[in-house]
C-alpha cells in the first residue's frame, strides 16, 4: 500500500512538472495582437511584366535593349511607425537573394509575428550595407555566385542585370549592369566606394490587422535604372561597369525611384 502511495505521488509530481512549460492563462494576459507580412518581388519595365531574351525595350537614351538575367540582394528591411519608431522581425535580419530564374526567391518567406497596428512605411537596403558586405559571408550557391572579387573590394554584387542592346550602328552588344563596391584608384591608393542605398517608402501607410497575412509587393521597374536623374546610355558606359565607379554612381543615383511598393492580400 505504501508503495502504491509513493507511485501515485511520483506520477503526480511528474505530471505537474510537465505542465510547467505550458503557458499559464490569467486575467492579466496582455499578449499583443499580431499579423504576418510576406514580401513578393516583381520585375517589370514601365509597368509591363518583364519579358526576358527579347529585344523589345527602349530606354530613355534611345537604346533598344533586352534583359536576360536579374539577380540582386535586399537587406535591412524595417517597418516604420508614425511616431518615428521602427520595427524589424527576426526573419528580416537575413539578407534575401532575388533571382528571376529561381521562383522560390521571388517570395520572401518569413514566419515571425508582427505587432498589429498602423505603420507609416517600409524601408530596405538595396544590396548589402558596408558592415554586412563581407567576403565569404555566403558559402552556398546561389548567393555565393554573387561574390564581388576581392581585388575590386570584395563582398558581393548588389545587382547583376544582364542583357543586350543595339549600338549606334545597330550591332548587338552585351551589357553586364553590375553594382557593388566601386574603386577610386590614385597613384598611391585605392579607395573603395560602397554604392548600396536605402529605399524608403515613408508615405506608404498601412494597417496590419490582428491575424492578417499581408502581402507586400516590391516592384523593380528596370527601365528606371536608366533614367532620372541621369540618362544612362549603354553606348557611353559600355558593357561592363564593375571597375567604373562613375557608371556605378550614376546607376545608384538612378536607383532612388526604381522600386515601388504595393499591397495585396490573400494570394494563396
Amino acid at each position: 500500500m505504501n508503495r502504491l502511495y509513493i507511485l501515485v505521488v511520483v506520477m503526480a509530481a511528474f505530471l505537474i512538472s510537465c505542465d510547467k512549460d505550458d503557458p499559464i492563462e490569467n486575467g492579466n494576459d496582455t499578449k499583443e495582437p499580431t499579423g504576418k507580412i510576406q514580401i513578393h518581388f516583381i520585375h517589370n519595365v514601365d509597368g509591363d511584366p518583364l519579358v526576358t531574351h527579347s529585344m523589345q525595350y527602349t530606354n530613355a537614351a534611345g537604346n533598344e535593349y533586352e534583359i536576360d538575367e536579374v539577380q540582386w540582394f535586399i537587406s535591412d528591411v524595417f517597418l516604420h511607425r508614425e511616431d518615428g519608431t521602427f520595427y524589424r522581425i527576426e526573419g528580416w535580419k537575413d539578407i534575401h537573394y532575388v533571382d528571376i530564374d529561381i521562383p522560390s526567391t521571388l517570395k520572401w518567406q518569413v514566419f515571425d509575428d508582427i505587432p498589429a497596428g498602423d505603420y507609416s512605411g517600409i524601408s530596405f537596403t538595396f544590396g548589402l550595407n558596408e558592415a554586412q558586405n563581407e567576403s565569404f559571408k555566403f558559402v552556398n550557391p546561389p548567393e555565393s555566385f554573387m561574390f564581388w572579387p576581392t581585388v575590386l573590394g570584395g563582398g558581393y554584387h548588389y545587382l547583376k542585370l544582364n542583357g543586350k542592346w543595339k549600338d549606334t550602328v545597330g550591332a548587338t552588344r552585351f551589357f553586364n549592369f553590375h553594382l557593388g563596391i566601386g574603386q577610386e584608384i590614385t597613384a598611391t591608393d585605392t579607395t573603395y566606394i560602397h554604392n548600396h542605398f536605402e529605399v524608403d517608402f515613408d508615405t506608404s501607410n498601412f494597417t496590419l490587422q490582428e491575424g492578417e497575412k499581408k502581402d507586400v509587393y516590391i516592384t523593380m521597374n528596370i527601365e528606371n535604372w536608366f533614367k532620372n536623374p541621369h540618362i544612362y546610355d549603354h553606348n557611353v558606359w559600355g558593357g561592363d561597369i564593375m571597375e567604373n565607379q562613375a557608371a556605378m554612381a550614376v546607376a545608384s543615383e538612378n536607383g532612388h525611384d526604381v522600386f515601388s511598393l504595393s499591397f495585396g492580400c490573400c494570394d494563396e
Partner: peptide, 28 residues
C-alpha cells in the same frame, strides 16, 4: 588571378568562380 577576376581582364569569374566560389564553376 587579377586578370581572371576582373571585367577589364579576362572576366572568367562570372561563370567559373573564384576565391569565394572555390568550386570554380557555377555549374550553370
Amino acid at each position: 588571378f587579377v586578370l581572371f577576376s576582373t571585367e577589364s581582364g579576362a572576366d572568367c569569374f562570372h561563370c567559373h568562380g573564384g576565391a569565394q566560389n572555390p568550386l570554380w564553376t557555377t555549374n550553370l
